[in-house]
Design a protein around this nucleic acid. Structure first.
Length: 129
RNA sequence: GAUACGAAUCGGCUUAUCGCGUCUAAGUAAUUGGGCGAGGAAAGUCCGGGCAGCGCAGGGCACCCUACUUCCUAACGGGAAGGCGGACGGUUGGGAACGACCGUUCGACAGCCAGUGUCACAGAAAAUAUACCGCCAUCUUUUCAAUGAGCGAAUGACAAAAUGAGUGAAAGAGCGAAUAGCUGACGCAAGCCCUAUUCACUCAUUGUCUCUUUCACUCAUUCGCUCAUUGAAAAGGUGGUAAGGGUGAAAAGGUGGGGUAAGAGCCUACCGCCCGACGGGCGACCGGCGGGGCAGGAUAAACCUUAGGGGCUGAAAGACCAAAUAAGCGUCGGAUGUGGGGCGGCUCGUUUCCGUUCCAGAGCAAUCCCAACCGGGAACGAUCUGGAUGCCGACGCGGGUAGGUCGAACGAGGUGGUCGGUGACGACCAUCCCAGAUAAAUGAUAGGCUAUUUGAUACGUGCUGAAAGGCAUGAAUUGAAAGACAGAACCCGGCUUAUAGAUUCGUAUCGUGA
């Protein structure tokens, strides 16, 4: 599996984002695993679940905890690299939701190694559901 | 050389792997190759402009902004050069007041003699200058001191263990004294006396003697009262003053001299100030000359006045393309029926039966009108014809959502050079293309190099020490750490704020060497 991260794997649609973050939605599942709170949403019945496409993800770093844009950029880039390098966990045999959101909830900037460890655990947990 | 301050510049370089955004080339496509990819502040969003939409006859008011001059600029609240003023430092003139020159630095630096307002605390007084204190002159009163005069009073003219050491008069007493006191008094009391003792230099003393008391006189001293003069003090009145009042952010020109009863630009010299014309400068302003004894507290970041400027909203502006779905509009086609529901009629009642959208035209019975014989006219309804609405389907249309394209990356552009200008800056020439995302790229991992900082190792030099060692310094090897402030979002010119470290220049201080 290539370690690319093209635009099709990034969740950009405002509509889906609004649905994903809407509280009380039936199709949205959530769990917390340091340092992420993960949201995932299964595809609706109308459109068939394409097994070939990889999920579209979104990464958020709150402005409340990191006031400066430099810090937010650094954290987001580290999280994205951790996802990109461990994307092989979503292979053909496993099932996974098409839309995933990773919310960075730690209060400090943590190193890439720790972020990668947490990302692996979070992805395994998503697959198991 | 170090430190401080100010100004300016820089704000690491690089390799590999895996990725991201964009441009470009090849390819039907998947994909592959190549180029480029954060900053001096990208930040704050404080000014100004471009650009865009909306609004808009012209003028005024209101509101907001700006405020020494000239220039630069697309524009600015930005910048440059200059003027003036303040602070600090240095040199210098002067007795002082106050200047002159140089350097650094700061200044929202138009106008409080257009008007209105405000001025805490302190202070005599905060704007009308003069109330108060004070100073001076004069008058009145009081007190005190000195001198003189008068009056009055007191005391004294001694002391004396008798007198001799004022006078006179009257009366009385005396002719050494003491060593004994107590009591309201009577009285009591070491019994009394002599001697003795002590005091007294001596002598004289029954006299023109001495003492006491009283009176008069004289003298002296003291006190009191009255008057006069002089001086001082206090209070009050009148007048003259504005020098002084030490407080304050700010006090009605300053300093020296003269002058005066005391003072005062009252006079004078210098400084400052005001006015006038003249000269210089584009101008702010400056210069000397002449005149005036001098008027005007501060505050406009108080209202306000003067001059100049300003339409509003911001790229989430704005322009364009455009699925799906629903409603809308247009055209065409179909059905205008059956069934059901509701309502009305018929009916005792009902599951039976009849009728039931709108418009136009034709048509006419009952009915009404004219006429009163025929006839003509009006008109509801049944009936017929046509149309519309409504229903279904197809196609199309405009608006417009998701989404997409443009705006939007060649520009008041960068670099270098020449020329003009004191400078900001401008002109010309050459050369370069240098981020362009849109839930938003510029990253992750593993190394290397250099600068700097720091640690270790052994070595050299200097100082110290007996030595071990310590301190300073130099170059070498090696280990660690590029770490500050901070992330483009339509673009540009500024301002402000943040910033580890490095470099250059200027000023000041200190040290060292020649």
């Amino acid at each position: 599996m290539p370690q690319t991260f093209p635009k099709s794997e990034r969740l950009c649609s405002k509509k889906i984002l609004g649905e994903l973050f809407k509280k009380g939605s039936m199709s949205v599942g959530t769990f917390y695993l340091f340092p992420f709170r993960t949201l995932y949403m299964h595809a609706s019945e109308s459109e068939p679940e394409g097994k070939s496409a990889l999920p579209a993800i979104v990464i958020t770093v709150p402005k409340r905890t990191f006031k400066r844009a430099v810090d937010r950029n650094l954290v987001r880039r580290r999280v994205r690299e951790a996802y990109r390098l461990n994307k092989h966990l979503f292979d053909k045999e496993t099932t996974y939701p098409p839309y995933i959101a990773f919310l960075y909830t730690a209060k400090q900037i943590i190193s890439f190694e720790e972020i990668e460890k947490g990302m692996k655990l979070a992805m395994q947990k998503v697959v198991s559901r």
